[in-house]
């Protein structure tokens, strides 16, 4: 395991309210992470602290083995594309790219130029006059062409059309294959990114609910449906994240550490199995009704 970032019991309190409460996780090199959660869950706050743009109330952060605050060795290896990134008012798209070339050591100007054509961005237009989608494209271009060992995208999809979204997906994976690095995608639009993610961190109300490889996740969560009586029998002693019934037929989403075994048991009991998408799983975990169960599931 090659950890490039380690966060320990990280907390951030804003005037009495905990935006982030005791979060610990590790980011490994050359993986694509999803930092998922609802709006206001604390995702952006965590990323701000990770990049020393705001300060933790308590807890520890080590990025590339060192504290990030005022640390050039750390900061010069991170590219954090904020949803709220400010650009000087008079900056045009080309000015942003020129500044990026100045500040990101691995900047690839040719790649940036190709991306610019892909996303059809007007080079001479003022950033202030760009639509939300175009502004997101600027962030994506900077994030990809900077080739920073730790690249963080905060809500990269905002306002992007379907074509641009799949462009981002394709270019990221292509470039990631050639130049491996650690990528963190923070978003509440989970379906859009779920295929790319190798590992997910789910945050809700400042707490870490889930820290799993997507591969394992697929094994651990599944949906079962069938006659209510059979379903009840199957569910006793097992974790159900969600339950619905229609007449004598019931459906449940099951969380199980022994996924394969439980699946065979469900089949043996005459129940239908179905996969659960990452999006559905996050909804079940964070919709508020299941806080307790989610805690247990962890």
């Amino acid at each position: 395991m090659n950890a490039i970032a380690k966060v320990t019991r990280l907390s951030k309190v804003y005037s009495g309210t905990a935006a982030v409460a005791g979060v610990s996780f590790t980011l490994e090199a050359n993986k694509i992470y999803g930092l998922l959660g609802r709006n206001g869950a604390g995702k952006t706050t965590i990323m701000h602290m990770l990049t020393a743009q705001s300060f933790p109330t308590s807890g520890e952060i080590a990025v590339f083995g060192e504290a990030p605050y005022e640390n050039d060795k750390v900061l010069s290896r991170i590219c954090f594309i904020k949803e709220s990134q400010k650009y000087p008012d008079h900056y045009r798209v080309c000015d942003v790219l020129r500044a990026s070339a100045l500040f990101f050591p691995n900047w690839d100007a040719d790649f940036a130029e190709r991306l610019l054509a892909d996303f059809r961005l007007p080079l001479k237009r003022k950033v202030k006059k760009l639509s939300r989608g175009m502004l997101s494209s600027v962030g994506i271009i900077v994030g990809l062409a900077s080739r920073a060992p730790l690249t963080i995208f905060d809500e990269p999809y905002l306002g992007l059309d379907a074509v641009a979204r799949s462009l981002f997906y394709d270019r990221l994976l292509e470039d990631y294959a050639e130049h491996p690095r650690t990528v963190v995608l923070s978003t509440h639009l989970i379906d859009e990114v779920s295929q790319m993610l190798e590992h997910v961190l789910v945050i809700d109300q400042g707490r870490l609910l889930l820290d799993e490889d997507t591969e394992d996740l697929r094994g651990k969560a599944f949906a079962v449906s069938g006659a209510a009586v059979k379903l009840e029998a199957f569910l006793s002693g097992r974790q159900a994240l969600d339950r619905q019934s229609l007449g004598s037929i019931g459906t449940a989403v099951v969380w199980s550490e022994r996924g394969a075994e439980d699946r065979r048991a469900a089949e043996a009991a005459g129940l239908e199995l179905a996969p659960v998408s990452l999006q559905q799983l996050v909804v079940y975990l964070t919709n508020g009704k299941l806080q307790q169960k989610a805690g247990d599931a962890r």
Binding site: Q53, E70, L75, C79, Q85, K86, P88, Y91, A99, F103
Partner: peptide
């Protein structure tokens, strides 16, 4: 304070620099 500073902080520049 409203323009170049937040821009460069976001681009990973140290406050000192």
């Amino acid at each position: 304070v409203a323009q170049t500073f937040p821009f460069l902080l976001g681009f990973g520049i140290r406050r000192n620099d």
